[in-house]
């Protein structure tokens, strides 16, 4: 049972991209080159230059600044909706996997019902019923990822609860809460971590999609998805706007996907 600490190349690339984007987000909290919402009517759709590294948009706002500000939204929505999804997914998956029987049946049919709708449709429905905004976007995207988490956590629970150390702990008088949090959870962290990382990129993509449709983050808060939509009419006159925004989204998704795959590979190697 020798553990090799060698990580794959995709893992390192993913980690680097994610760290760079995260760094950009951190910097934007304190400093952006311009005020992201400041309009300079004399410099609309300016080409990338030393003054405006990524150029300006149709209102003359600095794209780099908005991009940095937008990364806050992306991380905020990514982290919060993954947490929401993880919380409910864990609740449902853990109950189903640990107790089994009719509880399992009930939880899984509920998950089946959730899965019957395409995730993004479900999110659109939730947002139209309530109202667009960051909070509802987070909830809707969180709900979207609940089935994935619930299923992964359920199967990990079912697998782990059969081990003799769980049985032995039960024979020593341990209660369900003790067994779930001290014995099962520490042993299923890595599959959960992989699922969370992969779901993070899915969430960011979905948020971009929602914002593109005008259902996600509302103006004036910058969001990459909405920037892409705003850039669309100027695809011929100011192609850099679309290209830069699209590249940012792609990088974010790619980074988290590589990271998730890397963690999974490493986990496979160990077992």
């Amino acid at each position: 049972m020798m553990m090799k600490r060698r990580k794959s190349i995709p893992f390192h690339i993913g980690l680097t991209i994610v760290m760079l984007l995260f760094l950009m987000m951190l910097i934007s909290l304190f400093y952006t080159p311009y005020d992201p919402n400041m309009m300079q009517t004399n410099a609309r759709l300016a080409k990338p230059s030393l003054e405006h590294l990524f150029g300006t948009d149709n209102f003359g706002r600095d794209i780099l600044s908005r991009m940095m500000q937008g990364s806050q939204t992306a991380f905020l929505i990514g982290i919060s909706s993954v947490s929401v999804g993880l919380f409910f997914g864990f609740l449902i998956g853990a109950c189903a996997g640990y107790f089994g029987g009719w509880i399992d049946e009930l939880c899984m049919r509920f998950i089946d019902a959730l899965m019957a709708f395409p995730g993004i449709l479900l999110a659109i429905m939730l947002i139209t019923v309530f109202e667009p905004g960051i909070k509802n976007t987070i909830l809707a995207l969180g709900m979207m990822s609940v089935p994935t988490f619930a299923r992964i956590i359920r199967s990990s629970f079912m697998q782990t609860k059969q081990f003799d150390y769980v049985k032995a702990s039960k024979a020593k008088g341990a209660g369900s809460i003790h067994i779930i949090f001290k014995h099962i959870l520490p042993n299923i962290v890595s599959p959960i971590l992989v699922a969370a990382t992969l779901s993070f990129s899915g969430t960011i993509l979905a948020e971009a999609g929602l914002s593109y449709l005008g259902l996600g983050v509302q103006p004036p808060d910058p969001s990459w998805g909405r920037m892409l939509k705003e850039a669309q009419p100027y695809i011929a006159t100011a192609p850099w706007y679309v290209i830069i925004t699209g590249t940012m989204i792609t990088l974010m998704v790619l980074g988290f996907n590589l990271l998730g795959d890397g963690i999974r590979d490493q986990q496979d190697k160990k077992s």
Partner: peptide, 22 residues
């Protein structure tokens, strides 16, 4: 719970009977 203090079980496989994370 009192009964569980009086009776214990030792399983076959020592590799599966210990939580690997503890």
């Amino acid at each position: 719970k009192v009964w569980r203090r009086k009776v214990q079980i030792v399983f076959q496989d020592p590799y599966a009977s210990l939580n690997p994370k503890k």
